[in-house]
Write a protein that binds this DNA or RNA. Structure first.
Length: 559
DNA sequence: GAAACTCGCGCCCTCTGCTGGGCTACC
DNA sequence: AGGTAGCCCAGCAGAGGGCGCGAGTTTC
């Protein structure tokens, strides 16, 4: 509930234009619309259905749905109930209007279930102050309508004559609104008609503020649950009015064949007992006002708790630590978290247990995979609001965390903390690999190290230099290092050994006397040799061919 | 009716873990 | 010189702990 300040100038509640005027002026005044009973009194044929009725009125220009924008994308609408002919009462009970855009107004009404008619029309733009007001709840059934999700309705004023007389902002809501009247009715049992305007419900107005959800931009949806009945119905006494409203709820069971439920007319609260509903209705009475922020509370205790948040007073001190809290409940919870470790909420699917039910609820989403919080800019959806909020930083590019040393910015506090630790701290602890001598700065990187080097592979990996095989890369790499300095090329004639085969070949020639170029002479003599022995066709070199490798030698040698 | 207790939601925080780009040493 | 692999690092999401606070419920 917002601050109670409310000021509604009387001119906001534009008087309803009479049908004759409307007919005379036609389209001149679009902000004024005729009443249904006026239409009927003028001899207009009554449409047979609610949808048809409203559509007919709209098409004829007799009924206007005027959207006015007070600030930003908030839509301020004023609504007025009107008495209907008996044949319409059963048609127009709870309805919802879906205004796709003002050029093509669509009006739909839910199936009528109760006795309350609710023909509505919209009037002039309200003053800026009307953003404040009490929450106007929609019936649970209506809230299930997808178009209504994400909408908030604020009951701002409901009594025309009071609104005209009472323009003072402070406390005007509780004094003027039906909420107060209900309370008064419970106490004084005064009929609305008596305590209200001279014309009863005809003089009552409802002003609603509707706020479209993010995914409903450009659309408006209004839910009208229970409006006062016109002179066709006998208005009950206030106390009875409450009961009547309650009983009207009795007539609207949530589902057929289920237990009767009672629903608050002012919010979505439902219960199974009248006493509970009456008790609940006290929650709409907020007589205790904080002098600091003007918030109102039902009881002195709630007000005192609230004031403690301003003053910093924390009367409930923990006996085991220095913490202190405003309420005893907070202290109990703190003690469960920090001292007793009592966790009453246990997960049925794992061993998780939590201090709070909401934590268990959040935890269960990790089992179900439920991600109710959808990012509007990408496909990401999170399991709680905080993660979505944190995720949105990736779209905004905002990096709210700054390193106090190098002033680098980071998206998450943990990232910055790690940065400071790694970049600006001495003696940074390193993580020892449990399988080898590796020391790695980050635990996550150690994990990558273990995964890459110490993971068992079903298929054996063979050494490039020998037949040895391994199932673990680390073992293979270590083995291959043994080949690194290994003088595996050994001379068969002496103890000579070397790392490279070409060196062994060169060495062997020291035994054989072979001179590869040299068998044909030094490189610089090669040309001479070629000319002498190959270009001179008369010259025929006698070659002694090696029986093993086929190489030729100018003389017999064993190599 | 007030106080105590309980509940629910929101907010913020930390710890954790994965990922991919940049850098560098080694082959 | 180029390819490859490992390390460093920031980005980012998952999970859960802890508290603030208002409202509902129970108790007296």
């Amino acid at each position: 509930m917002e601050a109670p300040g409310l000021s509604v100038p009387s001119e906001h509640f534009t008087s309803i234009k009479e049908l004759t005027e409307t007919l005379e002026k036609g389209q001149e005044e679009v902000d004024r619309v005729p009443r249904v009973h006026d239409l009927q009194s003028a001899g207009e044929p009554a449409p047979i259905g609610s949808h048809e009725l409203l559509q007919a009125l709209l098409l004829e220009g007799r009924l206007e749905l005027v959207e006015t924008t007070a600030e930003g994308d908030k839509h301020i609408l004023t609504l007025q109930p009107a008495p209907l002919a008996p044949e319409h009462l059963e048609l127009l009970n709870t309805g919802w209007l879906d205004i796709q855009h003002m050029q093509e107004v669509q009006v739909e009404l839910q199936e009528a279930e109760g006795p309350f008619p609710a023909l509505l029309w919209l009037e002039e733009e309200p003053p800026p102050s009307v953003q404040q007001g009490a929450v106007f709840g929609v019936q649970e059934e209506l809230s299930l309508v997808p178009e209504l999700e994400g909408m908030k309705f604020h009951l701002l004023e409901q009594s025309l004559e009071v609104a005209k007389e009472n323009l003072e902002p402070a406390g005007s809501l509780s004094e003027n609104s039906e909420l107060t009247k209900l309370e008064k009715g419970q106490e004084e049992h005064q009929p609305v008609a008596e305590g209200g305007g001279p014309q009863g419900v005809e003089e009552q107005f409802i002003l609603l503020e509707s706020r479209a959800g993010e995914d409903a931009r450009g659309e408006l949806a209004l839910a009208i649950s229970t409006l006062n009945v016109g002179e066709q119905r006998e208005e009950p006494a206030l106390g009875q009015a409450n009961n009547e409203r309650t009983s009207s709820i009795k007539n609207q069971p949530k589902t057929k064949g289920t237990e009767q439920t009672f629903q608050c007319n002012l919010c979505a609260f439902t219960c199974s007992r009248v006493s509970s509903l009456n008790h609940h209705m006290r929650s709409h009475k907020t007589p205790h006002t904080c002098h600091v922020c003007l918030k109102t509370f039902r009881t002195v205790t709630l007000l005192q708790n609230h004031i403690n948040t301003h003053t910093g007073t924390r009367p409930h001190k923990c006996m085991d630590c220095d913490m202190a809290f405003v309420t005893s409940g907070e202290l109990v919870r703190h003690r469960r978290y920090k001292h007793t470790h009592e966790k009453p909420f246990k997960c049925s699917m794992c061993k998780y247990a939590s201090v709070e039910a909401s934590k268990l609820k959040r935890h269960i989403r990790s089992h179900t995979g439920e991600r109710p919080f959808q990012c509007l800019l990408c496909s990401y959806a999170s399991r709680d609001t905080y993660k979505l909020k944190r995720h949105m930083l990736t779209h905004s590019g905002e990096k709210p965390y700054e390193c106090h040393i190098c002033h680098a910015h980071f998206t998450q506090s943990g990232t910055m903390k790690m940065h400071v630790l790694q970049k600006h701290s001495k003696n940074v602890p390193k993580h020892q690999c449990p399988h080898c001598d590796a020391l790695i700065a980050r635990k996550s990187d150690l994990r990558v190290h273990v995964r890459n080097l110490h993971t068992y592979h079903a298929t054996e990996m063979q050494c490039r230099r020998c037949p040895a095989t391994f199932h673990e890369r680390y073992a293979l790499i270590q083995h291959q290092k043994t080949h690194k300095d290994e003088k595996r090329f050994k001379c068969p004639r002496c103890s000579y050994a070397c790392k490279q085969e070409r060196n062994l070949a060169a060495h062997i020639r020291t035994h054989t006397g072979e001179k590869p170029h040299k068998h044909l002479g030094q490189r610089r003599n090669l040309e001479v040799h070629r000319k002498k022995y190959h270009e001179d066709s008369d010259f025929n070199l006698t070659l002694h061919e090696c029986p093993t490798c086929g190489r030729g030698f100018s003389r017999w040698v064993s190599h």
